[in-house]
Amino acid sequence: MTLQVSVGKRLKFFDLEVSFTCEDKDMLVMIGPSGGGKTTIVRMIAGLETPDEGRIVYGDEVWFDASRRINLPPRKRKVGYVFQDYTLFPHLSLYRNAAFAAVDKRDVDGLLTLFGIDHLRDRKPDKVSGGERQRCAICQALARRPRVMLLDEPFSALDVVTRRSLREELRAMKSGLSFPVVYVTHDIQEALFLADEILPIVEGKVDRDWMRRTITREPAPGTAPRAVREPRLSLVY
């Protein structure tokens, strides 16, 4: 099935207007400078933000349609959402976090083992490392057997080594997933490593040329060239 998104919203500094599709088993990576609207788009898919106009459809189920006044609440969309920073429930152990919305509790043990955190199952989130928390957040989202998976810079708060190994784990398990995955990052390396399709978002619009301009450091049309050429950290590692 296909996730079809075509939305518009007036934001503070620009108008957001994007439209794209993502097939089952595909990983669509949204990339672009921070503050460009990537997170807003993902939040619209999850139902946490309401677009001013447009449609969001998964398969033949309409999640949002401005003209027909349809707006399915987040809890009915059945998406898996891994946030940028840790949103595990602080009062629950890792196991109970992962099992929080599990369709079948038997999935949970397998997921914890797959992500290598089974030995920490009884610890609370504040007693494990950042990488282990994000692993648990992914388990929590997967145990819900989501129809669409949304990952919003899930590894950006982690150190380089952990980030790299989690990125590799994610790519390895990608082939086993049967649903569309939308992944947000501002890291070009990560995008190239993971994506089936890359969707650059700049100031609320799809800007297909952004990747090339960024890599060659060509200034965007209509902007002044940079006075100082600072090193691109994202290209170093």
Binding site: G47, T87, R144
Partner: peptide, 15 residues
Amino acid sequence: IDRRLLESASVLGLS
């Protein structure tokens, strides 16, 4: 309580 916990709960299917 962090608002994101509540958002997470609603995404996870809680009323």
